[in-house]
C-alpha cells in the first residue's frame, strides 16, 4: 500500500534561514507518526508545507501517491489539522466555530456529527459559550473537534499538548491514542518531548536544524533491548573480575570508575540488582535510559527531563 504521505527532499528557507533541509520521510496508513525535535527544528514548517500553508523551495509532497500541489483541495478534504495554537473566532461560540469550519471542510456535515465530535472531545454543554471564555485546554479540544468533524483519514497535530495543564496533557494523549486505536486515524504528531512520542507514536522521526537525524518504528528506535542501564556503585576493585566471569559481561557497554553501563532490556534490572547484592557490591543507584535519549538530550536541552516526570 502506498504511504498516505511521502515527502522527497523537502526544503524550505525563510529569509536565508534554512528551516527544512532535504527532508524525506513516509507515513503509512494507520500509523501514529511522531515528529520529534526541539523548538525551531523545522517541525512546524514541515507540517505547514504538508498542509499547503507555506510553499517548499524544492522537493515534493505526495498524498496517497499524488502530488500535493496538483490536487491540494481534494487532498485537504481528507485531512484535519491543528497548527500551533488552536486559534478560533473568539467572538463566536464553540458551536458556531465548529459549524463554520465543518461547512468549509467539503461536503455536508449533519448537526448530529457536530454533537458527536463535541461529545468525543468532552465539550458537550459548553458549546454555546463564546470561545474567548474557553481555557487553553478547551480551545485545544475544540481544535481537535474541528480537525475531526469531517472524518478525515489523516490528522496533523502540531504540539497538541502545548500549553495544557498536566491533566489536560494526560487527557489529550489518551484522546490521540484512542483516535488511532478506536477510530483508525493516521496521525502525524509533533512534539519536543521524547517521552510523549514514545507513548503515543508508532513511528517517529527526529529532526534537528531542519534535517532528519533518524527515523523508524518507535519500538525499533527505542528497542528495550538496546536501552541503557546505568549502575552506580561504591568503589570496589573486585567488580571487573566478578563481572567478567558472569553472564552480565555480554551486556557490558562501558565502565568508568563507579559508573557501569549495560546495554540490555530494563526487564533484566532486578536480576542484575540481585546479582550485585549477592556479590557484595554496594549499589548506590540504578537508572534506565533510552539509547536515543542521551543523544536527544544533547540536542534539546533540559526541558525534556523536566517534563518526563509527568
Amino acid at each position: 500500500m502506498e504511504p498516505i504521505i511521502e515527502t522527497k527532499n523537502l526544503s524550505k528557507s525563510f529569509k536565508g534561514f534554512l528551516a527544512v533541509d532535504r527532508l524525506s520521510f513516509a507515513i503509512g496508513h494507520g500509523e501514529v507518526y511522531g515528529l520529534l525535535g526541539q523548538n525551531g527544528a523545522g517541525k512546524s514548517a514541515t507540517m505547514r508545507m504538508l498542509l499547503g500553508l507555506i510553499f517548499p523551495d524544492s522537493g515534493n509532497i505526495f498524498f496517497n501517491g499524488s502530488e500535493f500541489s496538483n490536487s491540494r483541495r481534494d487532498l485537504l478534504k481528507n485531512v484535519g489539522a491543528i497548527i500551533e495554537r488552536p486559534d478560533m473566532y473568539g467572538y463566536l461560540s464553540g458551536w458556531e466555530n465548529l459549524k463554520i469550519f465543518a461547512a468549509l471542510s467539503g461536503g455536508k456535515i449533519p448537526a448530529t456529527r457536530l454533537h458527536e465530535v463535541l461529545e468525543l472531545v468532552g465539550l458537550k454543554g459548553r458549546e454555546k459559550d463564546k470561545v474567548k471564555t474557553y481555557s487553553q485546554g478547551m480551545k485545544q479540544r475544540l481544535g481537535i473537534a474541528i480537525a475531526l468533524v469531517h472524518k478525515p483519514e489523516l490528522l496533523i497535530l502540531d504540539e497538541p499538548t502545548n500549553g495544557l495543564d498536566p491533566q489536560g496533557i494526560a487527557e489529550m494523549r489518551a484522546l490521540i491514542v484512542s483516535l488511532s486505536q478506536d477510530h483508525g486515524k493516521t496521525i502525524l504528531i509533533s512534539s519536543h518531548l521524547l517521552y510523549e512520542i514514545e507513548h503515543i507514536a508508532t513511528n517517529m522521526l527526529i529532526m534537528h536544524k531542519g534535517k532528519k537525524v533518524v527515523d523508524g518504528p518507535v519500538n525499533k528506535l527505542l528497542n528495550p533491548d538496546k536501552n541503557l542501564v546505568e549502575v552506580i556503585i561504591r568503589a570496589d576493585s573486585s567488580i571487573a573480575g566478578k563481572l567478567a566471569s558472569s553472564q552480565w559481561q555480554q551486556y557490558l557497554q562501558s565502565k568508568e570508575n563507579t559508573i557501569i553501563t549495560f546495554k540490555m532490556n530494563p526487564a533484566n534490572t532486578p536480576a542484575l540488582n540481585k546479582w550485585l547484592v549477592g556479590e557484595n557490591i554496594d549499589v548506590l543507584e540504578i537508572r534506565t535510559k533510552h539509547s536515543l535519549e542521551d543523544y536527544f538530550l544533547s540536542l534539546t536541552n533540559d526541558t525534556v527531563t523536566k517534563d518526563r516526570v509527568i
Binding site: 498542509l51 491540494r72 485531512v79 491543528i82 497548527i83 486559534d87 469550519f101 496533523i156
Partner: peptide, 10 residues
C-alpha cells in the same frame, strides 16, 4: 490565527 485553520480547509 484563524487564517491557518481556514487555509487548511479545502
Amino acid at each position: 490565527g484563524t487564517l491557518r485553520l481556514l487555509l487548511t480547509k479545502p
